[in-house]
Amino acid sequence: MKLPALPLLLALLLTAACGQPEKPVETAPPPPPPVPGPDLSALTDSNAAALLTQYGQQYPGSEIIVHTRLGNMRVKLYDDVPVHKANFLLLARKGVFDETVFNRVVKGFAIQGGRSDHRTIRINRYHLPPEIVPQHFHKRGALGMARYDDDQNPGKLSSNSDFYFVQGEKLTPDQSAAMAGRKLTPEQQRVYATQGGAPSLDGKYTVFGEVVEGLDVIDKIAAEPVGTDKWPTKDVDIKIEVLP
């Protein structure tokens, strides 16, 4: 005796339930491990130098790449300015600079970055002790740290996050010597004459690196239209990659 056929819908449901494997439950990927180094919100004028020196010894680095929409710059960081170097590496690895732009551009002088209107990473405002080394001068492509509140900053303490690249201009030896306000070596005068720079900044700001590839990117950024505050009318975003 034949059994009555199952209704079509019930048969389909039974087939689907018995014949298809269950889909695995999707889970969110684990969060990335925290970037090692001092808490940026805990750094102060009194502890920054010691903590950054220790960080630089534990997590060294020598080169970075600055990525922008106008091209990339490969930058060498100097070993004999350890606090500034370690500070820059720390902020780069923690993504601070990736939330900033070139916010002050003066053609024929320098392009400055490190600020923005959309920073989300919490960071304390601390200063760095000056590490002014005579052989590191403000030639074209030099990387230095800015400074603020000069009337309240007799010690020439550097900003913690505002940096600049020198564009400058070519100068005769007499011009560069007069602008520097200090004795320049023959080699420094030759570089200012053949490559250019901004000798008026020598001895006043810490230079802690230099562009070794992509100098033309400085010129491209310097040529961007700017507003009355020298901020480019179209943001030049920054993304910094620390090379192994």
Rank of each mutant, 00 (worst) to 15 (best):
P130N: 03
L143P: 13
S161I: 12
K170T: 13
Q175C: 04
H136D: 07
K156N: 08
Y164S: 02
S200H: 14
M179H: 08
R140Q: 12
M179D: 06
P173V: 08
F163L: 14
K170Y: 13
S158W: 11
Y205N: 14
T194W: 01
M179V: 01
A180F: 03
K170R: 15
S200L: 07
G197L: 04
H136I: 03
Y192F: 15
P154L: 02
P130E: 04
F163K: 10
D149F: 01
Q175A: 13
F137E: 09
F163C: 06
A142C: 05
Q152E: 05
A180K: 01
K204S: 12
Q188N: 04
Y205K: 07
A177Q: 14
K183G: 00
A180E: 02
Y192V: 02
G168V: 08
Y148D: 12
H138F: 15
L201G: 01
L157A: 12
S159H: 06
G141V: 14
L143M: 07
P199L: 04
G181T: 00
P154S: 01
R182H: 00
A142S: 15
G197H: 07
Q188A: 13
D149P: 00
Q175R: 09
R147N: 04
G196Q: 07
P173K: 09
Y192I: 00
R147E: 10
R140I: 02
N153Y: 01
I132P: 10
F137M: 09
G141E: 09
G181W: 01
R140C: 11
S200I: 00
F163N: 12
K170A: 13
V166A: 10
G168S: 10
Q189G: 04
Q167F: 14
V191S: 03
L143W: 05
Q135N: 10
G155S: 12
I132M: 12
D151Y: 01
Q188E: 15
D162Q: 15
A146V: 03
P186G: 12
Q195T: 06
A146Q: 08
T194S: 14
Y164H: 14
L201K: 07
L157C: 05
V166S: 13
Y192G: 08
Y205A: 01
Q135Y: 07
T194D: 14
P134W: 05
G155Q: 15
G203E: 10
F137D: 10
A177L: 05
V166E: 12
Y164C: 03
F163M: 14
Q188F: 05
G144E: 02
M145C: 14
R182D: 00
E187M: 13
E169H: 15
G196M: 08
Q167N: 12
K204H: 11
A193C: 05
G196D: 09
T194N: 12
Y164T: 12
A180Q: 00
D174N: 08
P130T: 02
D174T: 10
M179C: 01
L201E: 04
P199M: 08
T172R: 13
K170P: 11
N160F: 11
